[in-house]
Nucleic acid binder design. Structure first.
Lengths: 244, 244
DNA sequence: CGAAACGTTGAATGGTTTCAACAAGAGTGG
DNA sequence: CCACTCTTGTTGAAACCATTCAACGTTTCG
């Protein structure tokens, strides 16, 4: 029971496993090589090969893929406590790039350090793999959203998911949350045009469901929004510690 | 150098790592609990909780999510050599279901056996995590396709990806491959209506690019199709063994 | 002060869906 | 063995959701 502030990643993992002091210490140790990065400067480029991942401790990032025709698809957003590029540790080349949306703080973790930590602390390994599995489940849900939800439900679902994720690291609740994304980010993430995103947001605002404005998401009618989006947060698997 | 036929999974992993005899033996051992399943009978239901995965050794499967409104989104197809539910080993509940498309053979692997194999043979662990990373990369590419490609390019890209995957386990080449999917499967996977899939397939056939008919995909103009789809197989990471 | 980034709105266009109808083959039970 | 149904594939026409194009307002920042 330390008075020291814990990292967002630790906070997130504690929702899954109750880690002991040694495990907590090793986890914080992974944050050692912490650095700051400015807006827009990609951390990892598409096609780059690097056997390392990052732990994001402050700020927002998006991971995206650029198409040959110039359009881009944002695969996911990362908020504090999330890993960047955990998957590409094992693939020869990173299949997508990461761009900071705000100024950020991130710690670089070498693949070897991670593997080392895994063998020392199997429970920690389980927790981190849980986080990776959860990330993938989010990509899958994202796929379902783009494939099968109309624009209104898609935007609503997205704003709800983000709210749940942020709540897990103490950055949001059912009233709303701070959100530095632009309408262009939403468009690139949700497979819609920026113009249409604007119209959808207006509709959601005028019906009193949510307001997305000035870097702030405010829920007006949380349950109504859940109904519109058919939002079932089970895939986020964050209903409380699984392992004691 | 055994005359014994190797499993499709082994064949696939050998494209990534050159495994030694002990590793190969352990890998084959994971296939022990092999069983047959008939068409349509779900292996894992959405929401089910089971700490196990399957290795598919024969037949085709799809993983999908059903929406509350009844529509379904197919997340991915599994062909021989693929894992089923590797991700849900760590999550509390499976976030999607698996349905055999043909009669299949699959071996159940307990999470504990897998973890045990990982600690015994770290290189095998790396190979399996490579396969998992590759699966996730395919889901990401799938997301990009649904989000940013029009119907023609989406279908073309899908047929090309499937071809590359099957080639890796010796079930297809640049001429084409056997394919038990219906147009409804394509529709549910690609986020399009079955009617529109039919029109797209007709167009592709009439322009001589591909023929999808009677359980057979035949490439008419492979390079033309690659151009239409902007298909770059780098994300499949199967350009030859990475580890010696 | 001008440029750049972001947001906003209208009108026209277009890709895709929905609805509807029909054809062909496989499997089923009387 | 023949109706019957179910699945899959096919095609046309109308309706619709989202895009594109275009224009303009606002704020930020160098």
């Amino acid at each position: 029971m330390t008075a020291v502030e814990i990292s967002p990643l630790t906070r997130k993992l504690l929702a899954f496993v109750a880690l002991n002091d040694a495990e907590l210490a090793l986890l914080e140790q992974l944050h050692e090589r912490r650095r700051s990065f400015g807006i827009g400067a990609d951390l990892v480029h598409q096609g780059q090969s690097e056997r390392a991942a990052y732990i994001l401790s402050a700020g927002w990032v998006c991971s995206y893929k650029i198409q040959p025709d110039g359009t881009r698809q944002i695969v996911d957003f990362q908020v504090p406590g999330d890993f960047l590029g955990l998957r590409s540790v094992l693939l020869r080349t990173s299949d997508h790039a990461f761009e900071p949306i705000t100024d950020i703080q991130a710690a670089k973790v070498q693949a070897s350090d991670l593997i080392n930590a895994f063998s020392l602390m199997p429970r920690l390994a389980t927790a981190i793999l849980w986080a990776a599995s959860r990330d993938e489940a989010m990509v899958v849900e994202h796929l379902v959203g783009i494939g099968r939800r109309d624009a209104d439900a898609r935007v609503a679902h997205f704003l709800l998911e983000l709210g749940s994720r942020l709540a897990l690291v103490g950055m949001g609740d059912r009233a709303g949350y701070r959100c530095p994304l632009t309408q262009y980010h939403l468009a690139d993430a949700l497979g819609l045009s920026a113009v249409h995103i604007n119209r959808v947001l207006r509709r959601l605002r005028e019906t009193g469901l949510v307001t997305f404005r000035d870097g702030q998401v405010t829920f007006g009618d949380y349950r109504g929004l859940v109904r519109l989006a058919d939002f079932d947060p089970a895939y986020l698997d964050q209903s409380g510690p699984l392992l004691k």
